[in-house]
Design a protein around this nucleic acid. Structure first.
Lengths: 194, 194
DNA sequence: GATAAAAAGTGACCGCGGTCAATACCTAAT
DNA sequence: ATTAGGTATTGACCGCGGTCACTTTTTATC
């Protein structure tokens, strides 16, 4: 006898999410405590973990939602006419992803390397980002010897590289954009054939 | 009145490290518990944390040491004559870095994105890896429109991308090498000029 | 050797994520 | 209205990383 999900369950879940969102807005992602979320939502600790596999699952949801919202904006932009333009279009994404070291770590952990069992919220946004990029790069003023999907994947790899360097002791004087542009120039507009 | 580091301190530290190494050899990295290390070394918990900032610091040391040893071997290899050859040379490194999901996570966290205060052991190995790569790629059968250092950085970015995909739900059917080769081909041997 | 100051080590304690057997609550069938 | 069988929630409890006021040991100085 299989019974459907009860309304109170949905209510509890959405209360947990909205309390979490509120707390994050106030104190940032890293400072979020499960205990504060459950107290705020007026439920016991165990309830939290019957709604989310672990704290990371909630984190993924919150961060994923946020990235999705940013992608909504980014997506409306016109195809970039050069590398600087491209980076410009991605800036909102970059800024959010590097807003906290902790956020970047979570994103890294769940970007490509999502749990093997199922595709998480963050991995989804990377997929979506890949599609937006592939669309931007197709039939544009960039190299065309490889598929636009491969080009897009490469851009993502360099994005991550550049963001990582932002948090690095050696390179944190340069901005992410400064680091990124030469990479992408070399990737998207190679100047020699071997 | 400043006094030098005592011998027993050094002895304790090296005992902690060797016990940890032993435990890792037996049970893997993820399973390592600080409590087991201190019990094995015959010291109190607090002692551990007066030798290492946190558990990650020990982890970094162990993983860093391991990578360094692998780099010793890798370094002796001849300059690669093509992409396949290059990937082949890097294989020992790839294999270790993806031996455990946990290991890959730690490496990611401390690779470029080392603590801002000081450069950790893993970040050092990435630096070294970058130099080896730059040496391999200089004056080789690869593109020469950009510096070999930039080429090397790019290879590292693609390495991470490919390793991340290995743990990904969507791509884990392909081997890391299979994923990597087309990327590097496109990066190191672009076939068109725009 | 006695003394003082610094280094090294101790272990009870805390914070916080996560578990699980027990309980409360719903809803469909009678 | 009662009951049965599932869903949802509870909160005491655990594991494990990390802290800190305190004790023990070493070493320099007289």
């Amino acid at each position: 006898m299989k019974k459907p999900v009860q309304n109170r369950s949905k209510a509890t879940r959405s209360r947990l999410i909205s309390v979490a969102t509120e707390l994050i807005k106030k104190n940032g992602y890293e400072a979020l405590r499960v205990e504060d979320v459950v107290t705020g939502a007026g439920v016991a600790k165990g309830t939290f973990f019957s709604h989310f596999k672990d704290k990371d699952a909630l984190m993924e949801l919150c961060i994923g939602t946020r990235i999705d919202a940013i992608l909504d904006q980014v997506e409306t932009k016109l195809k970039p006419k050069d590398v600087t333009d491209l980076v410009d279009g991605l800036l909102p994404l970059l800024n959010f992803m590097t807003c906290e070291r902790y956020v970047f770590d979570v994103i890294l952990r769940y970007s490509g390397a999502a749990a093997v069992e199922e595709i998480g919220a963050i991995a989804m946004t990377f997929d979506r980002q890949g599609k937006v990029l592939a669309d931007w790069l197709a039939d544009g003023p960039f190299r065309n010897d490889v598929s636009s999907q491969l080009l897009a994947d490469g851009v993502q790899a360099f994005l991550i590289q550049a963001m990582a360097l932002k948090f690095c002791a050696l390179h944190n004087s340069q901005s992410t954009v400064e680091i990124l542009v030469p990479y992408l120039e070399a990737w998207l507009n190679p100047k020699t054939v071997v």
